[in-house]
């Protein structure tokens, strides 16, 4: 396996940002009640982390080490705000969908974590790949969690009724099935992620902690 492919593939499973590196948990919990929101958030992070990693990597030799955290935070925040402003001016509808995520992206520690751990020590191309890989790894978990929470919580996927109509009692609901509203609450996201970790580590024993 080439070094570059490894950068992309590793974070998808064995070095997953959420289940292994413990980064970006807050957003994974906050927005996964719906599959659509999970996907939108994943794409936003893909963009910000990809571009941010390149910017930080280009600046890595001129950033003073004493204030590097401030610099990193400001780079993310500036990027996000610029995108937000431009969208507000030219694609207002889209910006309204995304505005919810602005704060979540800035405070998302996956971005800071990758800046600190990778972009500060590597070239732009490798940093870019690392950014893409990690955001894809992040996306995988978000989409799995979003899938189960929306399906079990509201009986829908991407807003489409999969299990029938709960009010008109069609489909599964005709047999007495009920949506589990509890799945929509944030604590359940924690438990779902916990179960994902369980499954992952059962499959790959090397990841088990002592």
């Amino acid at each position: 396996m080439g070094k570059d492919t490894k950068l992309i593939l590793d974070p998808l499973a064995d070095n997953n940002p959420i289940t292994i590196q413990v980064l970006g948990i807050c957003s994974a919990l906050a927005i996964t009640a719906e599959l659509e929101a999970s996907i939108v958030m994943s794409i936003s992070v893909l963009f910000v982390l990809g571009v941010g990693n390149v910017v930080i990597s280009l600046m890595r030799n001129i950033i003073p080490s004493k204030i590097r955290i401030i610099v990193q935070l400001i780079v993310v925040a500036t990027l996000v705000i610029i995108v937000d402003l431009v969208l507000k001016a030219f694609a207002y509808e889209l910006s309204k969908t995304l505005s919810v995520f602005v704060g979540l992206i800035i405070t998302n520690c996956i971005i800071m974590g990758r800046f600190e751990a990778f972009a500060l020590g590597n070239g732009p191309w490798r940093s870019f790949l690392d950014g893409i890989g990690n955001s894809l790894g992040y996306a995988v978990i978000l989409i799995i969690v979003g899938f189960f929470r929306e399906l079990l919580g509201s009986g829908t996927l991407l807003g489409i009724k999969i299990l029938g109509d709960p009010v008109a009692k069609t489909g599964l609901y005709a047999f007495g099935y009920e949506n589990n509203g509890f799945m929509l609450l944030s604590p359940m996201a924690l438990i779902v992620v916990g179960i994902i970790i369980w499954v992952q580590r059962t499959r790959n024993k090397a990841l088990i902690e002592d």
């Binding site: 906050a30 927005i31 996964t32 009640a33 719906e34 659509e36 929101a37 939108v40 505005s99 919810v100 602005v102 704060g103 929470r149 929306e150 929509l184 944030s186």
Partner: peptide, 9 residues
């Protein structure tokens, strides 16, 4: 402005 997608939103 920023309610939780899928819940408050």
């Amino acid at each position: 402005k920023g309610e939780t997608p899928g819940l408050g939103a």
